[in-house]
Design a protein around this nucleic acid. Structure first.
Lengths: 233, 233, 233, 233
DNA sequence: GCTTAACCGAGACGGTACGTCAAGTCTTGTT
DNA sequence: AACAAGACTTGACGTACCGTCTCGGTTAAGC
């Protein structure tokens, strides 16, 4: 599922003595966590309540997760596991597609409440940040890598020459894409809908400068002369 | 200072009878809040501890703020009040300057811990989101507006024709800039230093597409949509 | 009330700042403790339940008592505070009277459950033993002293000459009297009723040996140390 | 050993199917129980800890005893099994001897902690009281009976005429003796040493009244005229 | 200079959730 | 069938903070 979920993997081998852990409990607990996130939000979510919802004892919960943070990260990570990168034929379309998927997940209240709170906590908890990275961030970054490879195969992007520079750029792209969607959704509290995603993709690919104002995908090509372009600051 | 800070302005007129509130208390409380944020982080910050640090009774604190969320927002808002937009001569330089300032503030632990947690809470509290917007977000957005006006005066950007479209674009830019810095700082947990800011500004102004890969923002490419260029991921 | 009840007497002076403790809470808590002892016994008594019964928060309870042991000792001590030593005209009658009172208190289930458990705990807790001594044992021992003084005034007992020896004897008497009643009530689980108390008093005053088997305590035997008599087992 | 120890005797016949119970386990468990009583006392003794000390699974423990109470009673009963009544030549000497033995056992921490707690629990648990009676109390009472028979054979005590009255007297003696030692040891927390036992035996045999003030075993006989005797209340 | 109303500190109050622990049961695989 | 191991449910533990309240004692402004 997520990996590294257990507070400490107790020698998970099958020949281990004693009663094995209930596999159904994990599923029920994570589902209950998401349900509680929707109803109560992060700050009012309590582990006792999650345990009750999951039909599980509180101790079972503490046996498997170190605390609220770790539990919520795992619960939210399952949401982001749904992200895919279907081939839509062009870099712009691929970006729009995956950004819309990301935005759709982030629009769900359990993701909103849980993810940002976990990130906030991770500023003071290196292990938590690593957990978030491993179970949520890195899989997303893999999509960026896949999209770049696809665009390079299509000839839309050049093959990178300097691997270190390439890695830096991927990180940059990822921060811009994910950050913009998150900020739009959480801080501005406006939907990252198709129209916004089109505008965002245009800026991402072509930038703000009028010099680079090629017609966006929603414009009718050839009329770019009198379209003002993505003006801004 | 921040505005709307008090939980309910108790008929703030100067001729009001009774002992006036201690102005020093506000200052001490907000400073103590930031101090506690640095030492403890959001989740372990308690109002009782803040009151003790500020040399103030807990009731004094509750008399002025509705709760932890509101208090922290006000404490963090003072940090962002330092943001300015000095004229550095070009749009790119202005952007780099303000983004670096923003990144410097966000690098401080009290901002990291406090801001994201407050944003997470605001997903379930409209009043809190409005407070964040009024005291933190809108002043920042004003900087974007100011920068755009300055760039238009310099001729770097065209004057907008459609005010609604212009507003949408400002919002988009703001989400991209703020979101990228926040994501870089908090999620990727890497410093948004000068090198990163340069790369980010280039992407923001010119985009990823090789089409826009001209060396300067005033350059007029358009020669080839598919010729490989230096930028891109 | 009992003395030393509070976990730490918080400078009980009247001019002390802050909200004063509710005096009614103490009364309600101790009554609730006895009620719970009757219904549940020591081992199933929980502080949370006592708090609920008393209409008081659990924290209020912990603020005033260090734990279950101390609380129960104070609750039981109030029962033994009822003991008196009315003058019934003779040493034997005085003894019978006070022993019957003691037995009546010890017959109550809250005393049975609570006292012995507290004593058992006190074998590993010096502070608890001291508390028991101060609030339960010493007041009872004072009755023994008073009874002896009264008997000496009546001429039934000679005035003591060696104070140390006198103190040892008082301790011995007390252990015999209290121990016998406790053992009868708790271990043998038989009522210490009037008949038993008469028999016990006779043994206490005259002993088992036939030599002392004269009808009244003022009788002067001494004829033979070893001649068999009517009493004895 | 103790009798009725098993929670349910599982058809103890030798031809019984399945793996037989480990005989060593019982010994190890009871010894571990006493060890834990010494180290932790009753209230902090846990069955899991006992199982660990005994090198036995918790389930093995529950298979044989119903709970903590029963286990501790059996563990303590083994201590009191050591009691004997050697013939010391006189009733007084016999009493002193057995009381000293009893006091020595009761001075051991595992007896102190365990016995009184079990007695306290037995006030609300008839089966437990019966178990205590059968395995601890009745064997002790048998010693009283034996001592009386011996004293009667010596002529120190008359033969009883009314069997019911005789039984009542034995019970009384037993409550007085055991109760006094227990109270001395646990409540007064003073050692029931030889000196105390001499004083106690004198009171038991001769009573408090000066009329019956024969010289005690530690007194020099013949000087009883000016010795005040066992004064007290 | 005397009210008077609102402030302030201290701290007890009824609650809620925490994270831990023990009791006692159940499920494995092994002896 | 008893055993060791250990996961399970249940529920109490004692702690920490919550947000409210009740005190006694300060300040100022305004009469």
């Amino acid at each position: 599922m997520v990996g590294g979920m257990q507070i400490r993997t107790p020698a998970c081998g099958p020949g281990r003595p004693g009663r094995p852990r209930s596999a159904a409990a994990d599923t029920a607990i994570l589902a209950a966590t998401r349900e509680a996130l929707v109803e109560l939000g992060w700050s009012k979510l309590t582990l006792g309540d999650v345990a009750t919802r999951a039909g599980v004892a509180k101790t079972t919960l503490y046996r498997r997760w170190a605390g609220k943070n770790e539990l919520v990260v795992d619960a939210v990570a399952e949401l982001f596991g749904e992200l895919e990168l279907p081939d839509r034929g062009s870099l712009a379309a691929d970006i729009e597609g995956v950004v819309l998927q990301f935005a759709a997940i982030l629009a769900r209240p359990e993701a909103k409440s849980g993810l940002m709170a976990a990130v906030a906590e991770s500023t003071r908890d290196d292990a938590l940040r690593e957990r978030i990275r491993a179970s949520i961030v890195d899989p997303q970054k893999d999509l960026v890598l896949e999209g770049r490879a696809r665009a390079q195969a299509r000839g839309e992007l050049p093959a990178e020459t300097d691997p270190a520079e390439a890695a830096r750029t991927v990180d940059l792209i990822f921060d811009v894409v994910a950050g913009a969607v998150v900020h739009r959704t959480l801080v501005s509290a406006e939907p990252a809908d198709e129209e916004w995603v089109r505008g965002f993709t245009r800026v991402l690919l072509q930038g703000l400068s009028p010099a680079s104002a090629a017609p966006g995908p929603s414009d009718s090509p050839g009329t770019s002369d009198h379209s003002p372009g993505p003006s801004g600051d």
